[in-house]
Design a binder for these strands. Structure first.
Length: 441
RNA sequence: GACCCUAUCGUCCAGCGGUUAGGACACCGCCCUUUCACGGCGGAUACACGGGUUCGAAUCCCGUUAGGGUCGCCA
């Protein structure tokens, strides 16, 4: 194993990138980075009917979003191209002829089948260990078709040929391929090629243990992109599904993961996918962002919601207040409307706060106190409110609640004093006046 | 059905012959607090079952059960 590591991710363009596939790609990528090897992307698009350019784009977008750049493959080229199987007809024909000349193939109604050696083949797996497969029973393991009557190629054959041609040294793939591996080993031997080392990683299941399919929550990488997840967070979460640094750390820098990653340390049991924990990690990344980074990340959602924030300079101070409340980026615009529009609907709970006996009276006294405040900032606003509360012999909350309701139409929000500071005296007093007349009588 | 993989809190991850079985998410209390969050403190919950091996098993072996995978002219 002195030769440089060459690993590959070989997806079929089906129109979406499954988290399981993404994790497979990630583990391959990590292994390449860890060993200083190469990560190759190969598109297995032999099924012409199903493959479209859009479906392929989803894979490229998903991998790039996760930061999994490929050293060789479509769009970047490389010495072993082309990297789409649909363009490698001549290569397959050459290998096919070799098998045919070696008497490994026979015609079965127009399809070509590969004749298995009838013996025990042992897979020596990086993750699962040595696993023997018995080919002696023809019923259980019938010979394998490698070419259809229409001349198109079957997965097993092109997969092996390309692994040979692309000089792949390690194949890290889903456990669903474990049973295919002895068949592939037979093909390697028939072609006189040294097989790569294999490592089969367990599948990802739903939280309840059922098989994860296309429509299940969190199954598609596109859903994370659209949902405003932090790519590094999703990547981090995926790393933790079946692998760990063997201590209790969970939020890990990519460099650290690259340094520690070992395929042999991957768990052998299937992991169940927990979107809640993924969300928590994502939030950890959100918390760690600078205000500027957070603004960049949240902006698309704010714009999409049509919040008339004006300039970035006006937006940033508001986000500074609200950032700590936000667990998911798409929630962001929900915290903003009343900062940028005087017209807003009062929530039912907020109305109740203002209808409470004495609420308008305390609000009026606060309004008066604020109207004459020398300096308009969070500290002075707080001091004034507390002074008035004390004078009236009530808890601060008695003033805070109606004030918040009057100014924002809500019962929850960021720190009241900071909110009032950002809103400015003029708007605050006007909104208090408006609430006073709205809820009078 | 046959073959293969797997089995620690609800979930993820530690543990690799001797631990009060640890951490995280979620959950439940309490505290903090102007709301909601955050934070702090505390709690409940796990070695699937049955046999071995051993002075001693979550850890090793064998069964059973359960889950998953594969048995295509899909990939």
């Amino acid at each position: 194993m002195s030769q440089p590591v060459r690993v590959r991710f070989a997806p079929s363009p089906t129109g979406y990138l499954h988290v399981g596939g993404a994790r497979t790609a990630l583990f391959n990528w990590l292994f390449a980075k860890h060993t200083g090897g190469k990560f190759i992307l190969r598109v297995e698009d032999t099924d012409k009917a199903r493959n479209t350019a859009e479906a392929l784009q989803v894979i490229y977008d998903g991998l790039r979003w996760l930061g999994l750049d490929w050293d060789e493959g479509p769009q970047v080229g490389g010495p072993h191209g082309p990297y789409c199987q649909s363009e490698r007809e001549a290569v397959y024909q050459r290998y096919f002829d070799r098998l045919k000349d070696g008497n490994f193939l026979y015609d079965d109604g127009g399809a070509w089948r590969f004749r298995f050696a009838r013996e025990v083949v042992e897979v020596d797996d990086l993750i699962c260990g040595k696993v023997p497969f018995d080919f002696n029973n023809l019923e259980i393991t019938p010979d394998m078709t490698i070419r259809r009557p229409d001349g198109s190629w079957i997965f097993h054959f092109v997969n092996v040929v390309d692994d040979i041609e692309m000089e792949i040294t390690h194949v890290i793939r889903g456990e669903d391929h474990l049973s295919n591996t002895p068949k592939h080993l037979q093909l390697f031997r028939a072609l006189g090629a040294e097989p790569p080392r294999y490592g089969h990683i367990p599948l990802i299941l739903n939280k309840d243990g059922s098989k994860m399919s296309k429509r299940d929550q969190g199954a598609s990488i596109t859903s994370y992109i659209d949902g405003g997840y932090v790519p590094a967070a999703v990547r981090n979460y995926l790393c933790l599904l079946g692998w760990s640094p063997k201590d209790d750390r969970e939020k890990l820098d990519l460099d650290e993961i690259v340094r520690l990653f070992e395929p042999s340390k991957i768990n052998r049991k299937a992991a169940q996918f927990d979107i809640e924990k993924c969300n928590w990690l994502n939030w950890q990344y959100l918390v760690a962002m600078s205000l500027d980074e957070f603004t960049d990340a949240a902006l698309p959602f704010i714009e999409k919601a049509g919040i008339p924030f004006g300039t970035r300079a006006a937006l940033v101070p508001v986000l500074a207040m609200v950032k700590e409340k936000i667990k998911q980026l798409p929630e962001t615009p929900g915290w903003l409307p009343y900062f940028f529009a005087d017209e807003f609907v009062f929530e039912k709970d907020a109305e109740e706060k203002l209808r409470k006996p004495g609420a308008l009276e305390t609000l009026a006294s606060l309004r008066e106190g604020y109207a004459s405040l020398a300096e308009w900032n969070a500290a002075s606003l707080e001091a004034k409110l507390k002074e008035l509360a004390k004078a009236r012999g009530v808890k601060a909350g008695e003033l805070v609640h109606p004030a918040r309701a009057a100014v924002s139409g809500r019962t929850v929000g960021p720190s009241l004093y900071h909110m009032l500071e950002v809103l400015g005296r003029e708007r605050v007093l006007a909104r208090m006046d408006r609430a006073a007349s709205m809820f009078a009588g």
